[in-house]
Design a protein around this nucleic acid. Structure first.
Lengths: 208, 208
DNA sequence: TGCTAAATACCAACCGGTTGGTAATCTAAC
DNA sequence: GTTAGATTACCAACCGGTTGGTATTTAGCA
């Protein structure tokens, strides 16, 4: 509640942990996990290495905490987003996709997913980080599951299930990020969402 | 012609370059670009660092060459694959998707894409690598474009175009890889392909 | 005072890259 | 068809800088 806003750029005493986690999100999204050094994180957060290892036992431990932090930050963003307004569950799904498409209007470095970026590098070398990223992605997918389930029932669709559709939505978004980064154009991410929207439109129109 | 086969595991003289490129493909796909050191590449290839910098001006230069090598290796794999057999272009697309689904049966480290993995880390820090990866992905997508174009005409579909569909196919595959790595299960990649197949089935059935 | 957050200073290992040299291979003159 | 000479392919040792991580000290709050 009365969370004192960080008055200026300099982090106050007690802010080091969050400053490091925020730095991790932006640095890892820009340049990946392995290329991001502890020194770099400390510099970006405006703290020293002593503070880093006071709050985190290792770089890996920070990675796990950063994935949790990412879930919290994005969770708050999506919870506050206006796409929950429609009464019909399918309309809420479409509103979610429109919202994701709008998010992809920003700079390239802002449209990627911390968890997706980190897990691509670390899936074979750090199980704690892999699991934390999996929980982040699957957790976000789960917020769509109830709407998908309701829409499936409403339209009498049985050829797939809500969990699969929710995960596929995340897969298409992740793939859109990869292509956008490669082609240097966020439009690639929006195109992927547009195809996904058409898929869902046809899938749910079929049963109506 | 009389190219003596490499008698044993030890690379003969002249093999160093290819050995390094092959090592790059497997190491980067497993642990990402930044986590893969030049020493590691040399050890895996069975050569010394002197050989490395004889063939490549820098680690970045090897990255660009590895992306080209990746295109050549996968290009040969897909060119020799049996999915080109069907007479109907749409059937060839479906056969391609089935083939990609089969490929995802192997171990997790074998289902990922070198270009997609590398570009996710390097898109903001190395434009040469970013462009080489983009060329690899877009080049592979282009091999599907003619079939998509023919199928679109055949079914009278105008709401999208062949290039967009070909790129979206790659986006779904890339996203499937990310989810498979996160969840530790290649089935996630196959699920993504299955949803893509259903999308295309409905899209092209509509126009028939 | 007692406890925690953060700063300073430091380390051994490893990073990408360079060095000077050696051995295999190609070329061409004879 | 041999062989001198240029060229390529490769090796071992090394370089300065950076890595993740630690030990010790100082400042702030209750």
């Amino acid at each position: 509640m009365s969370s004192h806003l960080p008055a200026f750029g300099k982090p106050r005493r007690g802010d080091a942990r969050v400053a490091l986690l925020d730095a991790a999100l932006s640095l890892v999204r820009r340049q990946g996990w392995s290329a991001t050094s502890v020194d770099q994180l400390c510099h970006a957060a405006g703290v020293t290495k002593g503070a880093f290892f006071h709050h985190f036992a290792s770089k890996e431990a920070l990675g796990v905490a950063a994935a949790v932090h990412w879930s919290a930050v994005t969770g708050a963003l999506f919870a506050a987003a206006p796409y929950h307004a429609p009464a019909d569950p399918l309309d809420r799904i479409f509103a979610y996709l429109d919202f994701r498409s709008e998010l992809a209007d920003g700079p390239l470095e802002e449209i990627s997913c911390f968890a997706g970026t980190a897990v691509q590098e670390m899936f074979a070398t750090s199980d704690p980080i892999r699991m934390a990223c999996a929980a982040s992605i699957a957790g976000h997918a789960q917020t769509l599951e109830a709407d998908f389930a309701a829409a499936l029932v409403q339209h009498g669709i049985t050829c797939t299930d809500a969990r699969s559709l929710a995960l596929h939505t995340q897969a298409v978004l992740q793939g859109g990020f990869v292509l956008a980064k490669a082609l240097g154009d966020a439009a690639a991410a929006r195109d992927a969402v547009a195809h996904l929207r058409r898929y869902l439109e046809m899938l749910f129109a079929k049963g109506t």
